[in-house]
Amino acid sequence: MKWLARIWKKLLTAALAGGISLVIAACYGTPYNYAFVGTWTIHVKSKTNVPIPGLKVSILEYVVGYAAPDSENVVYTDSNGIAFTQLETYHSGEDYHHAALIQDIDSLQNGGAFRDTLIAKNAPDSSTVILNPQ
């Protein structure tokens, strides 16, 4: 139950601080947001190797053994087909994971209509995804 106590601690600390940022900045140290666990850069391309802009990328955090993801952060691919996000968590321990649901929300404006695609984060901080047409 250590992980549960850690979640409560983070939530209470955040509440007392008036925000969700949980930062340690020791004297003569540098700030570290310990709810922040890394970054994820997702490069999205078509089968013809063309970057796809304007895609909705929902970053999901889930814990193994639970059906529904319990946090969601939305970013969009830029003109180079790149979506970048910082990953935050209220879970301490080893069992949380991140996934991204990539959705084409603008029909043909970004060069085509592409299938919804779900990917898991298994590389350290960067993933490349090839989308299939609908």
Partner: peptide
């Protein structure tokens, strides 16, 4: 309460 819980847990978050 937070401080006591953190002392008990003493999770190493930050290492110089």
């Amino acid at each position: 309460w937070l401080r006591n819980a953190d002392v008990k847990d003493h999770q190493l978050l930050y290492l110089f």
